[in-house]
Design a protein around this nucleic acid. Structure first.
Lengths: 195, 195
DNA sequence: TTGACAATAGAACGCGCGTTCTATATAAAG
DNA sequence: CTTTATATAGAACGCGCGTTCTATTGTCAA
């Protein structure tokens, strides 16, 4: 049986460790991970990974996975063929957290109920990212309080007035009289199909 | 001016550091972060954060942010009021990566072009998570090769046969004759509204 | 066979990490 | 004012981290 200790498998074990522990392993821990019996061997491979650009060391000398090993590959064109692993029609690698949420401190998630925004492709059960303290622009989808109830609507300016309109013809337009409570602006929506 | 050195601000600085550096700071670095001049003070506050359940130490004694400080809060019910910060109608806290992608190793992202799945709420420009090597079940949305072109379709079983049908009446059903290439199963879809 | 190179083991070492002690300033309570 | 608790500073210390050295093995080509 051949030794499976090559750069690929070592990279995978590191990514796996980081995903589980939310930190990089120590050299001693890597001895177990790589199945070697000396820290110098660990150092030997770490150097190789750094040469390949898979690992980096930050200013303080701590190991860091470079982006390419982390996150999920964003495939540019499937027509060119399916990505088997880290192939070359991979345009970029993104973390969902970073991609979907600009300001984590002032954002929260909300599960959608109802079909008032079905025309915008937001369905019952979806999860939307809401950013607070953001000035809504014309056409944005906002979380607004209407008749003591929080709903999602398009934010439209008509001259000096503001109109809230659903993305569903079954719902009427709303012309807020005085106070208009905006809970935030919807910046993204996600949906899961399988558990 | 009051000292802003309370548990909340310390927690925020740690979360911010971890988001930027992808690791926890050392005690020496925390001296700068917390604006104190002694490591013992750092230890003093770290203990407090551990008591509050904001921080943890793993088996090897390394600091770890517990889930509640990380990720984005999932609000249960907005009707009860908007979440100002870490309030108590927060049901859960989730990481988008973990929530959307079960198997990061065998998944990839794909940008949707066309409107063949508009009926399922997947629009042009959306990003879908595709999981390879997964057995499609009846009703799943799959990435399939049809006439040398990769498209997304519903996967339907009709007796012993398999039919691929778009979520758009403008597109015809497809009855694959022999080989049916399935590139993967769509497990999630995401959409960004604002840049 | 001989050499070159890649891969491993083991040991030694310095430095910085996290811990823990004592001491002091500030604030609240009696 | 005293007493108590809270919050800070500074220093000392042991241990483990990552580094680096030497030595040994296995593989492949000449």
């Amino acid at each position: 049986m051949k030794k499976t200790r090559d750069i690929k498998s070592i990279e995978q074990s590191l990514v796996s460790f980081y995903r589980n522990q939310k930190r990089m392993p120590t050299y001693t821990e890597m001895m177990d991970l790589f199945e070697v019996r000396s820290k110098s061997v660990v150092s030997y491979w770490i150097d190789k990974l750094i040469e390949k650009g898979i690992l980096e060391k930050d200013a303080q000398g701590f190991l860091k996975l470079s982006g390419i090993s982390f996150g999920i590959p964003l495939v540019g064109n499937v027509a060119a063929g399916l990505p088997v692993s880290a192939e070359e029609n991979v345009h970029d690698v993104v973390s969902m957290d970073a991609y979907l949420v600009d300001k984590p401190e002032s954002s929260f998630l909300l599960r959608v109920s109802g079909d008032s925004m079905i025309g915008a492709g937001i369905m019952d059960g979806d999860l939307v990212v809401v950013e607070r303290n953001r000035q809504p622009k014309n056409g944005d989808i906002v979380l607004a309080e209407v008749d003591g109830q929080w709903t999602m609507k398009y934010f439209r300016r008509k001259g000096a007035d503001v109109v809230l309109v659903a993305a569903n013809p079954a719902y009427p337009e709303i012309h807020p009289r005085e106070e208009l409570k905006i809970g935030g602006v919807i910046t993204a929506s996600v949906r899961k199909y399988l558990m």
